[in-house]
Design a protein around this nucleic acid. Structure first.
Lengths: 364, 364
DNA sequence: AATTAGCAATCGAGGTATAAGAGTGCCAAT
DNA sequence: ATTGGCACTCTTATACCTCGATTGCTAATT
């Protein structure tokens, strides 16, 4: 990449053009720059610099007689070298923190709240997944009689992930019988991984085998899926941005991409990759992503939580022409709040550290 | 309403015009009728009949030199008197039934499956809520240690509704302590309503009071909300229908109406009203609904489940110009399957009948 | 050598006129 | 009562034109 060879005046202009374009959503003319900003040069000079920036690939013209628009590499350059770190205003930080503080005990509310905060503070759609434990280790099972043969199986894994599934048993059992069964399995499987439980299958009576099968499939589900649900919030406001309101075909594609969340899943699981350190923010600009439907969008994603215990992903899907500074600062701030909350809730205990003793005893 | 005074030829024509309009999505010309259908009359006659139907308010012209479009009352008349009952083809019925049969034990899968079937068989968006018990009566509580102070509270109500919430206790308890606490509360509260539990509050020690507060709020949540989640499926395909693809403003409104589901909630709770017998299908055509954003849409909703135990709502949100016959038949069929599944799963037992004795003993 | 003012050239957006096509409404004939 | 024929109406599509915005170039200036 030939990135270093911009004069200071060129970087200034690129910065201003990006800023102007983000605000106006339309191509930026040389005159607009000299009028709106106090650069001490004439529009002709701006034009000649612009054409150099265009040659370098940072700007482009929609048509001959239009102003310039930053290209994707233009935005990329801006994000990586020109953008100064922004922070949310203290008032805003306090407001947000307060909202989270009020729901700190109600894990279920975190996702919607975070999504809502992200969406309202940016102009895009917020995406977020629940915190999610990496390795699935059996901690506790509870069987609850609900009605007739229907039994609710609640499985708690080390790290705090809770999975539940309704299942129909071959015959109706009383709550006492169910509790005893659960207790038995809890003694048998505590701390075990999916594989280890499979090895237990041979030793347990028939009824419990059924239940263990469900337990295993749930644990595998946890391990396999990047995350259960992808909350999203603020899709309408993204679609009202001029770039989507105009081209109607693309908006349908975009909605589909978000509703059927296979594509989102890929993005999320990318963001959740352990390579992606917690605290680092990943910015994907337009066509840099592999998904056609998202060509017109940029993503600002990060991973949050406590590494090796429970992590989730959150971020914003917005127009390419978004205020990256502001977006990144919100994403970073919300992530930092969730980091604390997750740490508080899932505070690692000695009991949760992977028990090498047990693993070794099975391996031997 | 002056509905009875249509000649048989007029009803035939209205039927044909509706049919043609549903297919073409554009105004129907007199010539289109005589060409596509074997009516033994000329286009001039069709025209004169059309103008009579227009006077009666069943048809309208977008402009002078266009064909006719059924008005909302035209569709209403069609739905109530002209439409013949359709049934899904047996092959299709079997296919659908088979899919449900495979997930019969996995309650969680019902909603997505039903939504998917509804959406794929119609051209609209499927809406559906989980089956939901009417009166909230305490059946069983389970407290599960997950991590640190975080405890998962699982509350099972009579009728099979399961609510859960994570909560942070003031101090950390072992699973044994938690189980004992739960057991104690189970003995104390079994069969009680929200009100009755509130009266118990005075008699229990402090820690459990905290838990009971959560229990009460969960039970109230169950009783208050029409339903927890409204699944929807197939929004993109609705938006691709010509009437929405054209006017881009309306599609944004529609998305918002569905995403922020306050408005949907109102519709759903209307469909869930006990006045609406299970099996009856409610058709709301265009402006008949009170919600502006849904002016361009029709709703075909029904209530499913077992009355007085657990019921939910399902239906399709489609363009006014939808095939009501086909839509109604799918909605009816999917509802009938869910009726059976709910009945099987939540089969009423003697234990579930409201215990008048307990209630009286408290009232006295 | 860099900067700038001035100006011709370019292209899109928006408005207007025109032609084509689709459909009705009416009337006179059957 | 029905129908063929025809004039009338209105939409849609197309072409055309003008206006304004913006650039690129050139020659003059610093």
């Amino acid at each position: 990449m030939e990135t270093a060879n911009l004069t200071s005046r060129q970087t200034l202009l690129l910065k201003l053009i990006v800023h102007e374009h983000v605000q106006t959503a339309s191509p930026v003319a040389s005159r607009a720059i000299v009028e709106n900003y106090e650069v001490g040069i004439s529009s002709a000079t701006v034009r000649s610099e612009m054409s150099k920036l265009e040659e370098l690939g940072y700007l482009t013209q929609p048509h001959t007689s239009a102003g310039r628009v930053p290209t994707e590499s233009g935005f990329r350059y801006f994000v990586e070298r020109l953008m100064e770190d922004q922070t949310l205003s203290l008032t805003k930080q306090r407001m947000i923190a307060h909202q989270f503080y009020q729901t700190r005990d109600n894990l279920k509310e975190w996702m919607p709240l975070a999504a809502s905060v992200l969406a309202h503070t940016s102009r895009g759609t917020a995406l977020i997944t629940s915190p999610h434990a990496k390795r699935a280790r059996y901690k506790h099972l509870e069987l609850i009689n609900t009605h007739g043969r229907a039994v609710l199986l609640v499985l708690v894994l080390h790290g705090g992930t809770v999975e539940q599934q309704m299942l129909a048993l071959p015959r109706s059992l009383t709550q006492t019988e169910l509790s005893e069964t659960a207790e038995q399995l809890n003694r048998l499987c505590h701390g075990f991984s999916t594989l280890e439980i499979k090895q237990q299958l041979a030793q347990v009576p028939a009824l419990e085998t059924d239940i263990l099968q469900v337990v295993i499939s749930l644990m595998q589900k946890v391990a396999r899926m990047p995350s259960n649900d992808i909350y999203h919030h603020g899709l309408p406001q993204l679609l009202q941005e001029p770039e989507f309101a105009a081209a109607k075909g693309s908006s349908a594609k975009l909605i589909r991409a978000i509703e059927e969340n296979n594509q989102l899943r890929a993005i999320i699981s990318d963001a959740l990759s352990p390579l992606n350190e917690i605290g680092s923010i990943r910015v994907i600009i337009g066509g840099e992503s592999k998904w056609d439907a998202l060509r017109a969008c940029s993503l600002v994603m990060t991973r949050y939580g406590v590494a090796n215990y429970a992590t989730g992903a959150l971020g914003i899907l917005g127009p390419i022409r978004m205020s990256y500074g502001r977006t990144i600062s919100v994403v970073r701030f919300v992530a930092s709040i969730l980091n604390e909350l997750v740490y508080d809730m899932y505070r690692p205990t000695a009991e949760d550290l992977p028990s090498t003793r047990k693993i070794n005893s099975l391996a031997g």
